[in-house]
Every structure is written in C-alpha cells, then in structure tokens.
Design a protein around this nucleic acid. Structure first.
Lengths: 148, 148
DNA sequence: ATCGTTGCAAAACCTTTGCACCAAT
DNA sequence: ATTGGTGCAAAGGTTTTGCAACGAT
C-alpha cells in the first residue's frame, strides 16, 4: 500500500524523503480525515517532528497525484484507497464517529453528467460526499433506541 | 426573491435588520460564490460598512435557514436559488469563470443513497459539486480551438 | 554536484469569542 | 422595554511566502 504510493512518487520523479514517508504512514493508519496539524500531532507522539509548512506541501503534492484527497465537508485529508477507479472518487462520511469510506461508481457519474449536460454544462470531475451514519454507528443508535 | 428570504426570516422570529438586508442584496446580485470579506468589499463599494464578524454571523444564519449555501470547492457563499426542492441542492461550478448554477434531482439522490445503503451506510444528506465548464466558457474555448 | 525538499521566521489571512452598545420588535 | 443583533477589540487558528540549509538522486 505504502509501497504503491512510493512507486507513484518515484515514477513522477519525486524524491522519496523521510517526511513524505512519515506523512504517508500517518495517513495509512488513520481512520478519519486529518488536518495538517493533526498529522503533526500524530508524528509528535511517535517522537518525530515535521514543520507544518512541510506537511502542507506534502499534502498538496499527494492530492495532486491522487495519493490523498481532501474531504471538504470535514476539512481533512485521507489517503486515497482506490486505484484508478471507474468514475470519480466519492466519500461516505459518518458524522457520528467521523469514519470515512471511499467509493466510486461509473453509473453515478454518468447520471450526474447527463443531468448537467442537459443544462449546457461540461463536467470535468465530481465532488461528492454523503453524510450520515456508518453501519456501526447506525446499529449503536438503533440499540439505544430500543433501550430508551 | 429578496422578499421571500425576508419572509423566511420573519417567520422564524429573526429580525429584519439593515445588515441582513444588505448581505441578502449582495448575494442576490452575485454571479459567483463570495467570501465574507468579498461581501464586505462589495458593500464598501456602495459606501456601506459591515463588520466582518457580522457578516460571518449573518452567513451562518442564512445557511442554517437554507437561504444560502457554502460552496465547499470554492469556499464561498451563494444565495440559495431553489425552493424546497426534491432532493439535495447540488452545484455546477465553472472553473473558468467561477459561475455557479444550483440544481436538484431526486433520482440522483436516490441513486447515491441506494449505492451507499448497500455498503451499510445511512445517508442523511449529500454534498455534490460538479466542476467543469459552463455553456458560455465551453463555447469560448471551442471557438479558440478553431482559431488556434 | 545538482536540484528538489525541508525548516524557519514571518506575514497574511480566516474565523471565533466576549462584551458593551444599539436597534427592531 | 425587551431581547436579539451589531461593532469592536482581541485572540486563535490556518495557510502562504521567501530564503537559507539540507539531502536524495
């Protein structure tokens, strides 16, 4: 996984540096979107230090290479967990626990494109985030309702 | 249009103040999403002054009442141009001229919900922005290609 | 050795908070 | 008169910039 990202960097002529590997590692291990300062904190816990500017720049790079995405409804970054998928990369965001799941579906993109094309618009890419409850949180809430 | 928004405010027990009317007016007249400071600049041109904090608070209020939306891919605010529509409010964002068009479609929402439900997710609402070229900018680009 | 990367300092920018005053109802 | 709204000052947080030093190739 991490290896795949490193190969992408190398293939594009970017250097494999400690800071980049560290940010990759943190993103790999995260369950939720992380802000640049979140990432800095995580690293501090491991006894490592990165300047926040460095983290900003690394995240910019990763996003430009689709190794990471910015989840706009949260304002944090996640590693990209999809390959060169069919259709744009979408997110489900649990507003209870903050967990993220990435997915893609060609038909959803086609439906959206068809609709906007009728309005004369030519779509390059989609941004799509579904907010709600993940399976776990939904179950928990359901149990609580039975009790209460 | 502006009247409709004012009625919504009144109906909810919010006061109709000069600052609120001014922000509404600016949003009405805008073709693109505006940041709080953009709005302040627009008003300054008209010889009016609002504190930025006031603008932040007014925008918060408007968004909570669905009189305005924040366009996340741009980071600015637009007036809501839809009624209580079928399905969530979506945007087409022209990355050339910045123009915004709002739309809604029940089927798109249903398609997305169906897909995520299969993954155990329970969607509350969607965030959806399509980025690309509006009809005008597409035409212009097309003309230029013919020439070049 | 080269050139891309990082760290640092600083600045710019964005957003929020608390409180006193003002104004719409 | 009441209560919500606004302005101000200040603080806190986020993001960007320029430059010198470092390190992967």
């Amino acid at each position: 996984m991490l290896q795949a990202a490193i190969r992408v960097l190398q293939a594009q002529g970017y250097k494999i540096t400690e800071p980049r590997k560290q940010v990759l590692e943190v993103l790999e291990g995260a369950q939720k979107p992380l802000s640049p300062y979140d990432i800095q904190s995580f690293l501090k816990q491991k006894g490592k230090y990165l300047n926040h500017v460095t983290i900003y720049r690394i995240l910019d790079l990763f996003c430009s290479l689709n190794l990471a995405h910015k989840v706009l409804s949260i304002g944090g970054f996640v590693k990209c967990s999809l390959g060169t998928a069919e259709g744009c990369h979408r997110f489900m965001v649990c507003h209870q626990c903050g967990a993220i799941q990435e997915f893609a579906d060609k038909e959803l993109c086609q439906g959206e494109d068809a609709f906007t094309r009728n309005l004369g618009f030519h779509t390059k890419y989609h941004l799509s985030e579904s907010s709600g409850l993940c399976a776990d949180c939904f179950r928990k809430q359901f149990e609580e309702q039975k009790l209460g």
